[in-house]
């Protein structure tokens, strides 16, 4: 304690004093709501600048500048053609996500709660996680046929093992002491699952949902590219084949914006609502 004080004093009195005040001033202006907005804005500007630099060094056919892509996107949005594909892809994402999450929840819960299920499914899950998604998707297309059902399954199944592992680990991490407390207070099985176990794994479930959504959307593009003739993935592949990178990026950009919206507004709100009991996070 004393040493720290001496250290701080010598620091202040030395040449670093001015620098320290400057840092403190910057810190003060950056903390708080407006500081956050400032940092976010500069983050987006930095990204845009990096894109412009890339566009300046590469041919326009390879990397079109942001404003070119924005203009293409504006035309696409006005023409409504893009909305049809976005709607199709979003539907596939929603279906694939529900399927993947449901299977992962059932498997993860079973493996977390039952020793037998854990023993039985462990090899499946570890095996499945090492299997390349491409092989899985192609197999599903071969077995189910080149149709929408296969596309949705193909997007969902590769994500199941990783989500299962997340949920399984979350259940293994449940606080046994709280469960003992519930039992000592005569709580029944259903009440323990609903009131003691579920809230404890909610953070992991939410994290899995976010993570799963991000993976699924990439998988959906992949299955569309491989075996569908509509959707954003197909369009991106189509424009790529005709060397139209502005369109490729316009489609990708719109989708990133939609997913960002889902992620930040929908899931972020849910997170704040679910976890308002946590004390404010301290940073080191």
């Amino acid at each position: 304690m004393l040493l720290q004080q001496i250290g701080a004093q010598s620091y202040r009195s030395g040449a670093g004093a001015k620098f320290a005040t400057l840092i403190a001033a910057v810190r003060a202006s950056l903390s708080g709501r407006w500081g956050d907005h400032l940092i976010r804005t500069s983050s987006i500007l930095t990204l845009l600048a990096a894109w412009y630099i890339g566009a300046a060094y590469l041919p326009a056919s390879v990397m079109p500048a942001p404003h070119v892509v924005a203009r293409v996107l504006a035309t696409e949005i006005r023409s409504f053609g893009i909305w049809n594909d976005v709607a199709i892809t979003l539907t596939r994402i929603a279906l694939a996500f529900s399927i993947a999450m449901s299977i992962a929840l059932i498997l993860g819960f079973a493996m977390g709660l039952s020793k037998t299920a854990e023993c039985f499914f462990e090899i499946w899950i570890i095996g499945a996680i090492t299997m390349p998604s491409l092989v899985l998707i192609l197999t599903i297309y071969m077995v189910v046929g080149l149709n929408d059902r296969a596309a949705i399954l193909g997007a969902a199944l590769p994500v199941v093992p990783i989500l299962t592992i997340n949920i399984w680990e979350a259940i293994k991490g449940i606080d046994q002491k709280l469960i003992d407390m519930s039992k000592a207070y005569h709580a029944g099985r259903v009440r323990i699952i609903a009131s003691v176990i579920a809230p404890q794994i909610a953070p992991a479930l939410l994290a899995s949902a976010r993570f799963g959504l991000g993976l699924i959307w990439k998988m959906v593009l992949f299955v569309e590219l491989l075996g569908r003739s509509d959707g954003v993935g197909y369009k991106i592949e189509f424009y790529y084949q005709s060397f139209n990178m502005s369109e490729v990026m316009a489609y990708a950009l719109l989708f990133v914006l939609i997913m960002l919206f889902l992620e930040i507004v929908a899931l972020g709100k849910l997170e704040r609502y679910l976890f308002n009991w946590r004390p404010a996070q301290r940073r080191f």
Partner: peptide, 11 residues
């Protein structure tokens, strides 16, 4: 049962 720790549900 009162345990050594409070064992309250933090949420």
């Amino acid at each position: 049962y009162v345990f050594q720790e409070p064992r309250l549900m933090p949420w």
